[in-house]
């Protein structure tokens, strides 16, 4: 997941489904749930069908980050690379994102690039460059 996941001009559902093209609606919603994104998505005007990205409904930095994480949950890969997953977020969003990442990390190899100490709780080993 890059510093700022790209949000494509499409519905929230399609944006998450990019993580695994062909995923079912239930799988997409489950992934959103695990990424703590479900709550804000259901409050959007058309829920999962709300158009986001260019020309669509605006969503905040924390929400973008959580959509990015939902993609990763759906992707279900064994190796995760996260670049500054919670940098641009306020404390509340950061907490959501961190708890989603801890969930996601279970049973997977994860490399987190971060400059803030808060991210260090997520990992077993810190490499200072």
């Amino acid at each position: 997941m890059p510093q700022r996941p790209t949000i494509f001009p499409a519905s929230v559902r399609e944006n998450i489904a990019l993580g695994r093209p062909g995923a079912s609606d239930d799988e997409v919603e489950a992934a959103a749930h695990r990424a703590h994104a479900h709550h804000f998505i259901t409050r959007l005007p058309q829920g999962f069908e709300t158009a986001v990205g260019e020309g669509g409904h605006g969503i905040s930095g924390g929400e973008i980050q959580r959509l990015g994480l939902a993609r990763l949950f759906l992707r279900d890969a064994g190796l995760l690379l996260l670049d500054e997953p919670a940098t641009h977020l306020d404390a509340a969003s950061e907490q959501y994102v961190h708890s989603a990442i801890s969930d996601l990390a279970a049973g997977r190899t994860m490399i987190v690039v971060a400059h803030r100490a808060a991210a260090l709780d997520l990992v077993e080993r810190v490499i200072a460059l």
Binding site: P2, P5, T6, I7, F8, P9, L18, G19, R20, P21, G53, E54, G55, R71, R75
Partner: peptide
Amino acid sequence: SSVVSHTTGMAELISYGAACEF
């Protein structure tokens, strides 16, 4: 905007295997 986001988000699309679909 599709073409722009396709270009800017290319790395992600490729890593998710979604480039063709896009």
